[in-house]
């Protein structure tokens, strides 16, 4: 796949020809579904010993994008979430802070005021979660969030255009949003649950990376299935191949449906085995989650205290 993937680089002209993109994306090798799912299942059985688990839990906590994306979000809820992001376990000062707080665009200012520059502030933009809005609105959405203090933007791709084969539209949108982001990091949400096939996930990953994404993210969390092990493995493989070819390292964010520490550790094993240790840090791998953090904290308390903890000993939200 080496040569054929050297298509429209992000440094070159942003306007691309859809037929060229189509032939290149459809020229990617097909995904071996059985092999992919088998590999993901095998990695999930890896036994993790106690010392590694302690490290993995702290690493996973530091990779969490603590998220609230509800219509009923209030300033107060966001402030509570920010407090939790900075001190996930108030009973233990050695507990690391999470990577970022992820909110809707209109709550970015509140979030930034709370966390200052101690953790990142991520905003979902571009008419999240459906992505059904005009280009101008999407760009305004992005610019406003950045102006309010977001240093990470989570955008959704236009799945309708992607599924209709209009890859150039998706590509140009990502390029335009990346430009609107300025210095902010851009995470591109593929919404793999709506892409239907593994082949489409591979194509969307390459498309997003070529268009200038800093991160590729599995899902919005609003569609089921959200992040799964095979889909994330496939995206990690795309990231690995992309780094081999271009030297550019793209991050991956698994979001939605990851609820337990056991799941989180399986993802970390997969990251380590697929792209290597360089990705085992919050700059290169993230979990988008809300309930996961509490389970990580309970497991952390269990490691510290020697007995199982319970939901009474962690904060709600």
């Amino acid at each position: 796949m080496a040569d054929q993937m050297r298509f429209t680089n992000k440094e070159s002209d942003a306007t691309v020809d859809n037929s060229t993109l189509t032939s290149l994306l459809h020229g990617l090798p097909g995904v071996d579904q059985v092999g992919l799912e088998g590999r993901a299942a095998t990695l999930a059985t890896r036994s993790i010993k106690k010392d590694s688990k302690i490290w993995a839990i702290d690493t996973a906590i530091s990779m969490v994008d603590l998220t609230t994306l509800e219509g009923m979000d209030t300033d107060g809820k966001v402030r509570a979430l920010c407090a939790k992001a900075l001190h996930p376990d108030p009973t233990d000062p050695t507990c690391p802070a999470v990577a970022a707080v992820c909110v809707y665009g209109d709550l970015v200012a509140t979030t930034r005021a709370c966390v200052k520059d101690r953790v990142h502030v991520a905003a979902v933009a571009t008419a999240f979660p459906s992505g059904r809005a005009s280009m101008d609105v999407k760009l305004m959405d992005t610019k406003q969030a950045v102006a309010d203090g977001a240093d990470e933007i989570d955008m959704v791709i236009d799945r309708g255009a992607f599924l209709a084969g209009n890859y150039a539209k998706v590509f140009e949108e990502i390029v335009a949003v990346k430009e609107a982001c300025g210095d902010a990091h851009l995470k591109v949400i593929l919404e793999t649950g709506e892409l239907k096939t593994y082949d489409n996930v591979r194509r969307a990953s390459w498309l997003a990376m070529q268009a200038g994404a800093d991160f590729i993210k599995t899902s919005t969390g609003k569609v089921s299935p959200a992040a799964t092990l095979p889909v994330t493995l496939l995206m990690l493989e795309a990231v690995r191949d992309f780094a081999d070819q271009t030297g550019t390292r793209i991050g991956v964010k698994a979001a939605g449906g990851i609820k337990t520490s056991k799941d989180a550790i399986r993802y970390l094993v997969m990251v380590n085995e697929t792209v290597g240790e360089d990705w085992l840090n919050p700059d290169m791998f993230r979990f988008g989650a809300s309930t996961l953090l509490n389970d990580l904290l309970m497991q952390r308390q269990r490691m510290r205290d020697g007995h199982y903890s319970g939901p009474d000993y962690v904060t709600i939200d």
Binding site: Q301, G306, H307, Y308, S309, G310, P311, D312
Partner: peptide, 9 residues
């Protein structure tokens, strides 16, 4: 004993 020390019991 495990149930006794489990904080969620």
């Amino acid at each position: 004993p495990w149930l006794a020390e489990h904080a969620d019991v």
